[in-house]
């Protein structure tokens, strides 16, 4: 269908000169070519990205999530299988388990939380830099699962940390976890899981905020006796 007269000048379609010339003149030579990234190449001669900064950041966050290497119970075995070959979570840009919470964006909570471990998990969560996201894996993180009636079992991860995505199952199959994480990425990219959310339990930190209607409403929802963790925010790292 293409005829010669519809084609642009040969100097344009046959050569990369028009874009590279502009780019080179913009970037310059020598020490500064550290900006000469793949991204730049993709943008070509256009020096501008026409998007909202927030939107761009959300896309970046959703596309490269560092997970915390964090195993609690049975679900962590399936979580390992999700990271490992066959299921390979890395295909979705979310498969780098980091051993330190300081380097992680996402914490998957894989298992039953008991009274002795709850505060420790809270501390690990606190050590993660903002923005951070939580995937609750398995029934135990939803309600305590099969151990709900146990004297020592915390009835769901939501009592301790805010959970963005719940993946049900006992344990969930790796496919289910992949789906949950893909959903989280989607939400992050769409800005639905906003990076900083004030959860009711965090209100103590903002105790000196002016008590407007919203703050008051949230504060009223807290039943102090029901808080599993009475957390000491001033000493927290």
């Amino acid at each position: 269908m293409s005829s010669d007269q519809n084609k642009p000048r040969q100097s344009i379609y046959d050569s990369t000169a028009p874009s590279t010339d502009t780019r080179d003149s913009r970037i310059g030579e020598g020490a500064d070519d550290r900006f000469n990234s793949k991204l730049r190449e993709a943008f070509g001669s256009t020096p501008f990205i026409l998007t909202k900064f927030d939107k761009f950041m959300n896309w970046v966050r959703g596309s490269s999530m560092f997970m915390l290497q964090f195993g609690i119970a049975c679900c962590s075995i399936e979580m390992m299988h999700t990271y490992a070959i066959k299921h390979d979570l890395d295909r979705f840009g979310a498969g780098v388990p980091r051993a330190s919470p300081r380097q992680a964006d996402v914490i998957i909570v894989p298992g039953t939380i008991v009274s002795k471990f709850g505060p420790r998990m809270k501390r690990v969560y606190d050590q993660m830099p903002e923005p951070k996201f939580v995937v609750g894996m398995g029934s135990c993180t939803i309600s305590g699962g099969p151990f709900q009636e146990g004297y020592n079992v915390v009835k769901g991860a939501e009592e301790i940390v805010p959970v963005d995505i719940h993946v049900p199952g006992c344990p969930p199959r790796p496919e289910a976890l992949v789906y949950g994480i893909a959903k989280l990425q989607e939400r992050v990219a769409n800005g639905e899981s906003s990076p900083v959310v004030v959860k009711p339990y965090e209100l103590e930190e903002f105790g000196d905020l002016p008590r407007d209607e919203l703050v008051q409403k949230l504060a009223d929802q807290i039943d102090e006796d029901d808080l599993v963790m009475r957390y000491n925010w001033s000493d927290s790292p």
């Binding site: 505060p119 809270k122 009636e149 146990g150 004297y151 020592n152 009835k155 009475r230 000491n232």
Partner: peptide
């Protein structure tokens, strides 16, 4: 169990439904 736990959960007079708050 944490060292501050009250009671012995498998003894007969223990109330297993009562949660115990254990802070850091």
């Amino acid at each position: 169990l944490p060292e501050t736990w009250q009671g012995h959960p498998l003894s007969l007079d223990y109330n297993q439904t009562k949660p115990q708050v254990v802070s850091l």
